[in-house]
């Protein structure tokens, strides 16, 4: 991983040293899972569930996505999803939905940084 890519990922909210540590400095394995991230269906599922007012579906998608972000040390998105999952659980639907613009922004930024 060159320093430019590393910096782009860091800027997008991915804590590269923490992620590498979780993969025991196995960079190949980290890249393999980073490559899978944009194709992960949970972001689309979350958006669709919110559009449909499906509370159960939204919680499941947000929860699964949170797990993936946690493993990849996508700190900013992970923290936001943690708050969103808590909001869904607490029955604060509007509060959870209000987090979506920020969530999309972080998600897109990460996908772009990974793709480059």
């Amino acid at each position: 991983m060159d320093s430019a890519r590393r910096q782009r990922l860091m800027d997008a909210g991915l804590d590269v040293p923490a992620a590498l540590e979780r993969f025991m400095n196995n960079e190949t394995l980290l890249e393999k899972f980073l490559a899978k991230f944009p194709a992960d269906p949970n972001h689309d599922r979350l958006a669709a569930a919110i559009a449909a007012g499906d509370q159960e579906g939204a919680l499941t998608a947000a929860h699964t996505m949170k797990g993936v972000c946690g493993n990849l040390s996508m700190t900013a998105l992970f923290d936001l999803l943690t708050r969103q999952v808590a909001a869904f659980r607490a029955g604060d639907w509007d509060g959870a939905v209000a987090m979506m613009p920020e969530l999309d922004r972080l998600y897109d930024g990460l996908c772009t940084a990974i793709a480059k």
Binding site: M24, L29, T64, V68
Partner: peptide
Amino acid sequence: DDEFNRAILDNL
């Protein structure tokens, strides 16, 4: 059930 989680623990 998550391949990702298994891979991390496996690697560890």
